[in-house]
Design a protein around this nucleic acid. Structure first.
Length: 481
RNA sequence: GGCCCCGUCGUCUAGGGGCCUAGGACGCCGCCCUCUCAAGGCGGUAACGCCGGUUCGAAUCCGGUCGGGGCUACCA
């Protein structure tokens, strides 16, 4: 049987990095097995759904490069792949379960349920509703006919046990007294997640379900439902959750949980994918930077780790740097120019594009995030903005005016304007003034770029051009006086 | 509270009875390179939660304990 897997985000929030990781694992598995990867929208929560989240899910998936064979936007044999458009089908299943006596109309009031749970908890038992307030079928039919709007609950067989093999954690068993008679169809006729998700998995022929560990304890419900429908449950694999640095489930207060935030922070999708892949999976050897093809080749559910994993931003940024350095300069320029323009608030002129291309290799080798680059090269495209700390640190020394004056004189008379000739002139300035490279060059750097931290000095000067370089040196000299 | 899951350096992990005086990566520290910052090179720091058992031998198997996490809705 060919592999059919899915990722089913609910559009009640931006695509979460944890969901992105689950999506990646499913995708790798499908691609490695020549299977089918499906993107489905679990949008049964009509209250909290928002089109902007739906949009974000699609955009983020594409950004990561995780293409899907069937699903929203692309269609397929089970279109539309949106649960909100399949309510009739869920109702149909609920009704047939009802007819078969596997589910029932529940007249239990919230007060009764609440009382039951409190009592059970106080007695040290599991507060899972066991159907004790269930009324007989005849009465139920009568009351529903009379217009009572009540939910339909699953009649969980008790006593009973559900055991399943989880591909990442081996056998897991749940006693049915831990499983409540859960609602499958709400009193307003809408399906719950359990029903909709299970029906879809059955209808779409899903063979493997890889999802977050947070639904591990709901799995018996899904298995019971699947069996009640007369189908065979898929293979389950529950992924350990992503944690924040404090060991708690990754949430907003830890920083970014939305994938799009990383895109905006200048993270490359390739780096994100590589980092995410290693968060709970190991290619088996001492390797860290792994290409997508290699991942597809080597990925297997059995090699997924059981441990919860803490999301490490430092490592992500390091990896991003690795991918940035691996890019060709052309690609790099293509990717940073929009960011530079966004930073400047205007498009770059043709000659400015040339300047950007000229300085690019020098910032590429030291960049961690694409967004850093815009700041690092800003001095080329606008007026110099002096960083106060930098200024105070190097411009208040007695060497600063000496170095700047000598450098100005040296550069003004240069025949050629190349990195080499500039370097020669400035090194000559050093020996004339008897200044160390550090003492002599740092004031120039601040004068020209505004900061003690910048791309390499000689290259920066070359790209800046003679007029502007000299103007800045003179301006700084004037500011010193 | 109940149930379920998990437990190797600070972090992500390799490891599935002797190959482990526990390997790799990020981070951190030091040195080198050097016009700044990075990058790069070299070196270093640092872990099998604890207690029992099984065994000639345990990070690896078993039990307990402690710790962490998840679930416990007419939310997904």
């Amino acid at each position: 049987m060919s592999v059919r897997v899915r990722i089913a985000p609910s559009p009640t929030g931006y695509l979460h990095v944890g969901t992105a990781r689950a999506a990646l694992y499913n995708w790798l598995f499908a691609r490695g097995r020549k299977g089918v990867f499906i993107l489905r929208s679990d949008d049964t929560d009509t209250e909290r759904n928002d089109p902007k989240y739906h949009e974000d899910i699609v955009t983020s998936m594409r950004w990561l490069g995780l293409d899907w064979d069937e699903g929203i936007e692309v269609g397929g044999p089970h279109a539309p792949y949106r649960q909100s458009l399949r309510f009739d089908r869920y109702r149909e299943v609920a009704m047939s379960l009802l007819a078969e006596g596997k589910a029932y109309y529940s007249f239990a009031t919230p007060e009764q349920l609440d009382g039951f749970r409190k009592e059970a908890q106080a007695a040290g038992r599991t507060p899972a509703y066991d159907g004790r307030f269930r009324v007989d079928a005849a009465e139920a039919a009568e009351r529903v006919a009379a217009g009572e709007k009540v939910p339909i609950r699953m009649a969980v067989p008790r006593p009973g046990l559900t055991t399943f093999v989880d591909s990442v954690r081996d056998d897991v068993t749940f006693d049915h007294d831990q499983v409540d008679d859960f609602v499958i169809l709400r009193s307003d006729g809408s399906p719950t997640y359990h029903l909709a998700s299970t029906v879809d998995d059955v209808d779409f022929g899903i063979t493997h379900v890889m999802r977050g560990e947070d639904i591990l304890s709901s799995t018996p419900k899904h298995i019971l439902l699947t069996q009640a429908m007369g189908a065979t449950p898929p293979v389950y694999a529950h992924l350990a959750l992503l944690m924040g640095p404090d060991g708690k489930k990754l949430s907003k207060r830890h920083g970014h949980t939305a994938l799009n935030a990383y895109r905006e922070a200048g993270i490359l999708p390739e780096a994100m994918v590589n980092y995410l892949a290693l968060l709970g999976w190991s290619p088996g050897e001492d390797e860290t930077v792994v290409s997508l093809d290699e991942m597809i080749d080597r990925f297997d559910i059995d090699d997924v780790t059981k441990n919860p994993t803490i999301f490490d931003n430092d490592k992500l940024e390091w990896m991003n740097g690795v991918y940035i350095r691996e890019m060709s300069t052309d690609d790099f320029v293509a990717r940073i120019s929009p960011m530079v323009e966004a930073h400047l608030g205007r498009p770059l002129e043709t000659d400015e594009m040339g300047q950007l291309a000229a300085i690019a290799p020098h910032v590429q080798e030291r960049a961690k995030r694409l967004t850093d680059v815009a700041e690092q090269v800003a001095f080329i495209f606008g007026d110099v903005v002096y960083d106060d700390v930098s200024w105070d640190k190097v411009m208040t020394t007695s060497e600063a005016p000496v170095a700047i004056a000598a450098a100005t004189a040296g550069l003004a008379t240069l025949q050629e304007w190349t990195t080499d000739s500039i370097e020669a002139a400035l090194r000559n300035m050093l020996s004339e003034t008897e200044l160390s490279a550090r003492k002599g060059f740092q004031p120039l750097r601040v004068a020209l770029t505004g900061s003690t931290v910048s791309p390499p000095l000689f290259e920066s000067i070359e790209v800046l051009g003679r007029e502007r370089a000299i103007a800045r040196l003179e301006a700084a000299q004037g500011r010193l006086a």
